[in-house]
């Protein structure tokens, strides 16, 4: 299997506080990986370190055989290969739905306007938002915004999709529509790395579940194994608390 991203000995500190400690972890092509763990365990930080929204304090991130933490590496170019979906959606407020999905393709990937809009519409259709292409973000519900955010990331044709708690800021009745889109993407063979609190969803779509606690990866494996028959006490305790 082809490794897309390989993380070696990654660490991250905010001042004295060590958030990630010697994390080793990789994502294979076509794999759906769910990162679980209690808040403050470092799972979101790990995801943000992968696309360098947080600068790691040490270690290496290998992409295409190159360590992107090298000083001279083109960070902007690397980021176009990763699609990021945020907890707070972060749609561009000054642009409408279609423009949100076009701007990166046009300005960063230098695609023509025509090609960019075709691609944008294709993915807006995938997430079921093509009807609302003229709407501004402020006119949409949370679930709709998140679906647009997913389409915006997909339109860049990334190698990996990163999801940072994509449903945590949503009203309960809107969680379903976003998870449904993500299920479709997983079924289509997209490589996905998902930080989530939705255990049911993880069990259903993940090829691999990674449990993190206090900045280290405690346990990882197939969802049936990690979620149903955890080996470590910390995993057991966490699952007992969340699956109640």
């Amino acid at each position: 299997m082809e490794t897309v991203i390989d993380i070696k000995h990654l660490s991250k500190s905010f001042g004295q506080h060590e958030v990630l400690k010697d994390v080793n972890f990789s994502v294979q092509k076509g794999e759906v990986v769910c990162l679980i763990g209690s808040s403050g365990s470092g799972k979101s930080t790990l995801l943000r370190c992968i696309n360098l929204l947080e600068k790691p304090s040490g270690g290496a991130i290998i992409y295409n055989g190159e360590n992107i933490l090298d000083d001279k590496h083109d960070i902007e170019k690397y980021r176009t290969h990763l699609g990021m979906v945020f907890q707070q959606f972060n749609l561009f407020n000054n642009l409408n739905v279609l423009e949100n999905c076009i701007v990166g393709q046009q300005k960063v990937l230098k695609r023509s306007k025509q090609e960019a809009s075709e691609k944008a519409l294709k993915y807006l259709k995938v997430v079921g938002m093509e009807k609302y292409q003229h709407a501004k973000p402020r006119q949409l519900s949370g679930g709709q915004k998140q679906r647009v955010a997913i389409a915006r990331a997909l339109a860049m044709d990334p190698d990996v999709m990163l999801f940072d708690e994509p449903t945590s800021a949503l009203d309960p009745e809107m969680v379903g529509e976003v998870l449904k889109v993500m299920r479709t993407l997983a079924a289509e063979g997209n490589t996905m790395l998902i930080v989530t609190h939705e255990m049911e969803f993880a069990r259903e779509v993940a090829d691999r579940v990674v449990f993190m606690d206090k900045g280290v990866i405690v346990e990882e494996g197939a969802p049936e194994q990690v979620l149903a028959d955890p080996k470590h006490d910390r995993t057991k305790e966490f699952l007992k608390r969340t699956l109640k």
Binding site: N51, L53, E76, K77, R79, T80, L82, G83, M84, F86, Q88, F89, N90, L91, F92, N93, V103, G104, K107, V108, L109, A149, R152, A153, M156
Partner: peptide, 13 residues
């Protein structure tokens, strides 16, 4: 909002 910068950076701007 900081999220606007992050989203822009995340698509490679």
């Amino acid at each position: 909002d900081k999220g606007q910068y992050e989203a822009a950076q995340a698509i490679g701007m």
